[in-house]
Structure formats: structure tokens, C-alpha cells
Write a protein that binds this DNA or RNA. Structure first.
Length: 478
RNA sequence: UCCCUAGUAGCUCAGUUGGUUAGAGCGGCGGACUGUUAAUCCGUAGGUCGUAGGUUCAAGUCCUACCUGGGGAGCCA
């Protein structure tokens, strides 16, 4: 008999069907005559209730059916006599595929903290919460490709190993095959990277953008979706040393087109989750509600599904950096001196300011544009005012910056001037500047932190809980 | 990296102004129970109190350093 997934049984199974299921035991309970096994195979958040008539099975077999054990069960589907489920399975043959010693298996049928499960990241997929998170994560990855594919974008694989250190997006991880203890040295006593594997110093990528621009200025629209590495000593709930980023780059797009795309993209992802992951989202919403109960009233957030629907159904607020500064200066917390950091035109906004705008003033996702040029990267489009650049940051409640992007400067002259001012080595970037030398056109792009998106969709609070095996300072387990 | 905070049973925690033998709930194990829903009821085992020093007649409790976790900040996606 062919194995049937529990998802199919729960959605399409008919009483009387003979089936085989394979999965892992979540709990076993029951009385002298009958046992109930909640079996889960990862295909859906719900368990299949397997009913075991104790008289028909070996005592020792039943004893070994503990939480975490893997079983193959064949039997007949039946309408459930209990009230918790519509359909269940009457076991005829039970095979223990792999036991799980209850003294040693750490995931027991009780509430565990996320911190404990994080330390057991290799087993946390076995829990409802994490199986839901990772099914949603998969669905979102698929939805990213679906969105861009339907729009005619090309998925471009930009390099993971790169020699360019030009974007200044953060500290980089060195990639080298030199002997760390005893590297070859130059006459000046510096490490001689000409003898290294690539003949020069190389690092893990912090962004595929620059290479992405090269693709966009020929293919029209491209996007990247791959791992990204930042060797920053960041210890927060929103940062990882290894994370996944999506970076679309589009020729002939100005800043407004860029914003339109970012908003449409985020909404299409949210819609995909609502349309395809409702079971998991409902579970996660319930989990969140439970967690929120312990918080003071004023810190509680909206129901997860309501929040997703709210973002889907409302336009993002679009304001300039300068307008944001005005709003902040006229705000209550500013007047009462509640902000810790100063607010004046020219400073970068702190997260307390962003949170005020998004969570208090507008209570809605916000796109901030046209930042002062001195706090943004060299490649951004210089505005006519001479002071600002065509940057855009999409700010989400709780998460903060979920997207950062800009229109790119297409004028060779302006770009070279800016690079000189900001000490970006133009010589090493000659390949990048060639796009401005030959057939340069206006173009734009942005970067979306994939894990930050998953935080928002799942309502999880810590970025380490939405990636399978988080890499953070002092942590590269598993 | 900075600030705050925590580390006691497998897990979640309690442990009074320092004072005999360190507790509970959950989980585990044994038993009971005619269909249970994280079942219920009875019983039972389980601890180098994060590590290393120090103060003291006496340290889970006080002090110092380190390690690890959590929250916040910075950096950013």
C-alpha cells in the first residue's frame, strides 16, 4: 500500500479508505483498552489521530511509542467518535520505525521556551511552532519567485565570493586559503594576497546589488535571492551574520516606479501567505495571542491575521525624509523631550523615531524617501536640490526597515565625483562604471531582508527563530 | 561593542534579613481508568545551585572576573 500524507487524509480522506501513514508521535494518551496517538508527518500543522485497540498489539511495542518516535501505521479511516477531529484512523498494523527514548528526547509534550528550542535547533522542527514557521518560510520563498517570474524578471545568481569591498554595506567575512598561522607577507609586512587562491583579497558578499545592476542594464529586470553575509557584531532580534536577501534591479525605473514595485511585491507576498498558509497562520496567531497575554495592555499588538489583512488593504504612506523630520519636531515625544537622540535635518533617523512614525503617528507601513546624501550610499541618484538622494526605505511596525532601496545615479560624471568625495576606490570599480559609460539609463532597485519578512508574516519576535540554523556572533552551531 | 537582566531537577520556575536535610508544577517512570484531546487520578525517581576565585563560623543567597542566554541601543536587511 502506498503511503498517504496526513494533509491529504485530513483534507480529502473518506471513512473506509485503507491507508498507510508514516510520521512522528506528538503525544500518546488513553486508557486500559484504547490508546490515541497524535501522529504528525510535517505535511500540515494538524495531527492524525490514530486509534489503537490495546488488545491487538504487543505491550512492548506500545511502550515504545513515545513522543518523538517514528511510526508506520496502516489501517482504515473512520469518522471520529471523539469531538476534536472529523476523521481518524483505526490502526491495523503498527511498525516502530525509530524509537525516541523519553528520558533523552528533549521535545516533550509540554510548553518549551523559544530559547530552549533555539539551543535544540536540530529538533525544533518537530514542534508545531517551528514546523509552521518553516512551511510559511518555504511558501514565501516560492511566492518571491512566482511574483518576479510573472512580471518577467530574470533570476540572476550573483557571486557569493566577491573581491569588491566598495558598497560599504558592512564588515565582511574574509575568504582565504592562506595559512592563517603563517601567511605569506609582502616586503611591507602585510599579508600577501597575490598568493591567495584568487590572487587577491576576497570576501563573502554583503550585497548582490552592484552585479545586479549589470544584469538589469541588459536584461531589463532582474532579481537576486541568495545568502548574504555581514560580519557585524550585531546582537539584536533583527540581525543575522548570514541571512537571505532579495534584490530586484530594474532598468528604466525611477524612484516612484521603485516604490510601486516594492509595495506591490510586499502585498503579493502577504496575499500569498493568506491564500495558502491559513492553517499555519492561524496556529501562529493563536500562539502570539497567548504570548501577548503576559504583556501590558498598551504593548499588545494586533491579531496576526488582522495585521496582515490591514497591510494588504491599505496604501503605504509615502513621505520624504524632510517631511518626516517636520512631523517628528512637531510630535509630542519631541516636545516633551522623550526622544533619546536629537532630531534635526541631516541626522539619520534612530529606531525610536522610525517607530514613532510607523507605530504612533501613521500606524501603517511608511515609505521614507529623499534622504540627505551624506547618510546614504554613493550610488544613489543625486536629486536636483543638491542635498538629497533618491533613496527609499520601507518601514514596518515592530520590524523597522524591511526594505532599503534607491534610484541609482546613472550619470558617470556625478557618480565619479561622489565616489571621490566618499573615498570609494573608482579604479577597482571600473567594471561597474562601464554601465554608465555605455548606454547608461535611469534604473532603480531595492533589497528585502527575507528573514525580516518572515518575522512580519509569522509574528515571531526573534529573527533567530525564522531561519533554520542562525549564525550570529559567537554562534555557529549545527 | 555599550547598558540592563538572568543562569537552581529533562523543561518552566520558587527559594525570606546569609543559618540544619534545596522545593513546586510540567515532563519521565510505575500503576489505575470503557474514546482520549498538552486526558485525568494515585505513586515514584531525579540536583556539583553556569565556571573560577573571594568575604564569612556559615554562601543557592554577598563581592570580583569570566562564560552563556534574554531585552534594549548602535550598525543595517
Amino acid at each position: 500500500m502506498k503511503r498517504v500524507k496526513i494533509k491529504d487524509i485530513l483534507q480529502k480522506g473518506e471513512p473506509g479508505n485503507e491507508v498507510v501513514v508514516k510520521g512522528w508521535v506528538r503525544t500518546k494518551r488513553g486508557s486500559k483498552n484504547v490508546n490515541f496517538i497524535a501522529l504528525n508527518d510535517g505535511s500540515i500543522i494538524h495531527n492524525l489521530q490514530v486509534v489503537v485497540d490495546v488488545d491487538n498489539f504487543d505491550d512492548s511495542l506500545l511502550r515504545d511509542i513515545n513522543t518523538g518516535a517514528a511510526l508506520s501505521v496502516s489501517g482504515k479511516l473512520a469518522e471520529s467518535a471523539g469531538s476534536g477531529q472529523a476523521i481518524e484512523m483505526i490502526a491495523e498494523k503498527v511498525e516502530l520505525l525509530g524509537g525516541a527514548d523519553p528520558d533523552k528526547f528533549p521535545i516533550q509534550p509540554k510548553r518549551h521556551t523559544l530559547e530552549f528550542l533555539r539551543e535544540n535547533a536540530h529538533l525544533r522542527f518537530r514542534t508545531n511552532t517551528f514546523s509552521a514557521v518553516f512551511r510559511v518560510r518555504h511558501a514565501m520563498a516560492f511566492a518571491v519567485h512566482k511574483f518576479f517570474n510573472e512580471k518577467g524578471f530574470n533570476y540572476l545568481h550573483t557571486p557569493i565570493i566577491t573581491a569588491s569591498d566598495a558598497e560599504g554595506a558592512g564588515q565582511m567575512f574574509r575568504v582565504s586559503t592562506l595559512d592563517a598561522k603563517n601567511p605569506p607577507l609582502t616586503d611591507e609586512g602585510e599579508v600577501d594576497y597575490t598568493q591567495d587562491f584568487f590572487g587577491k583579497a576576497t570576501n563573502l558578499t554583503v550585497s548582490g546589488q552592484l552585479e545586479g545592476e549589470l544584469g538589469a542594464l541588459a536584461l531589463g529586470e532582474i532579481y537576486t535571492f541568495g545568502p548574504t553575509f555581514r560580519a557585524e557584531n550585531s546582537n539584536t532580534t533583527r540581525h543575522l551574520a548570514e541571512f537571505w536577501m532579495i534584490e530586484p534591479e530594474m532598468a528604466f525605473y525611477d524612484l516612484k516606479d521603485n516604490m510601486d514595485l516594492a509595495e506591490e511585491f510586499l502585498k503579493s507576498l502577504i496575499k500569498y501567505a493568506l491564500d495558502n498558509c491559513m492553517d499555519d497562520l492561524q496556529f501562529l496567531a493563536g500562539r502570539l495571542k497567548q504570548e501577548e497575554k503576559s504583556k501590558p495592555q498598551n504593548q499588545r499588538s494586533m491579531d496576526l491575521i488582522e495585521k496582515l489583512e490591514f497591510v494588504l488593504n491599505n496604501n503605504f504612506i509615502r513621505i520624504t525624509y524632510s517631511e518626516a523630520i517636520d512631523i517628528l519636531i512637531n510630535s509630542k515625544p519631541y516636545k516633551k523631550k522623550k526622544f533619546q537622540f536629537p532630531v534635526e535635518w541631516g541626522v539619520d533617523l534612530q529606531s525610536e523615531h522610525e517607530r514613532y512614525l510607523v507605530e504612533k503617528h501613521f500606524n501603517c507601513p511608511v515609505i521614507l524617501t529623499d534622504y540627505p546624501k551624506d547618510i546614504k550610499a554613493f550610488y544613489m541618484k543625486q536629486n536636483a536640490d543638491g542635498k538629497t538622494v533618491g533613496a527609499m526605505d520601507v518601514l514596518f511596525p515592530q520590524i523597522g526597515e524591511i526594505i532599503g532601496g534607491s534610484q541609482r545615479e546613472e550619470s558617470l560624471e556625478k557618480l565619479e565625483t561622489r565616489m571621490k568625495e566618499m573615498n570609494v576606490p573608482a579604479k577597482e570599480m571600473d567594471w561597474y562604471l562601464d554601465t554608465r559609460r555605455f548606454g547608461s539609463v535611469e534604473h532603480s532597485g531595492f533589497g528585502l531582508g527575507f528573514e525580516r519578512l518572515i518575522l512580519f508574516i509569522t509574528g515571531m519576535g526573534n529573527i533567530r527563530d525564522v531561519i533554520a540554523f542562525p549564525r550570529t556572533p559567537k554562534n555557529a552551531e549545527f
